[in-house]
Amino acid sequence: MEQSLNYQPGLPEPAAAKTSGIKRYLTLLLRSRTATFGFIVIVALLLIAVFQSQFATHDPTAQSIRVRLTPPAWMEGGDPQYLLGTDQLGRDIFSRLIYGIRISLLVGVAGVAISCLIGSTLGLIAGYFGGWVDTVIMRLVDVFLAFPFLLLAITFSVTLGSSLRNIIIVLGITGWASYARLVRGQTLSIREQEYIQASFTIGSNDFHNIVRHILPNLVTPIIIYSSLEIGVYIIAEASLTFLGMGVPPSIATWGNMLATGRDYLSNAWWLATFPGIAIVITVLAFNFVGDWLRDVLDPKTTYDI
């Protein structure tokens, strides 16, 4: 029984167990090849989107029937002027891809932001306060989730009319429900943790608990989920546009390119293939970075020099 009180519990002093700081982020980033890839792709996309006119070789809307359906430059019949070929109206595919980045990123990020804001707020309220508020919110979530996402989006975009702004709003308000469900579940499990009770016993109130304990513990799942959702939204924009409910066909977007390219798959594969590859790479990049963020945001992840 009588052991010394000043027993110093033997905590091994890890040589370089760093749990914060830019250096830790960088080390963890460079250590993961997929994350490095994702990071480079996203930064490159952002740069190209900002300086799109410097990168594009042609006006993305300029038509020229004379050169329609030119194959990519390295193929027989290709023209070095048109790196990735031209579409059925003779527009340069490479330049259209470049101009599509801005829209895809905008739709992905803004759509996710709107969904996340609405869904997380409602999910947090439902999970934290429970009772009839929870019941009402979650029934609404069920209704939204019972509808197929695209059907819902189509319904909204038919009502609102198709424009870039509307498609972002449509994706935002159709996608909130899955956020609400995710955040409610997480909130429920966090609020049952003893550290929330402990926080009450030291004098905190609901507001303090939400800001200091619930939200910080929600950040990781929300960021990971969002990084996956951005890809989903980019594809959803493409699908809506593909179905003729999205961005007006005159605007160059990956979705529009995919939609028209479909009709030419048998004789001009490059119309649909390049926007398809662009979507896949972008979605992957966000997923990789999301995976990496999960590790980085967890204080349990340390690194050794």
Partner: peptide, 14 residues
Amino acid sequence: QMIFQDPYASLDPR
């Protein structure tokens, strides 16, 4: 004040 049973759950991991 209160001291809790579970020394893992009673401290905010973040």
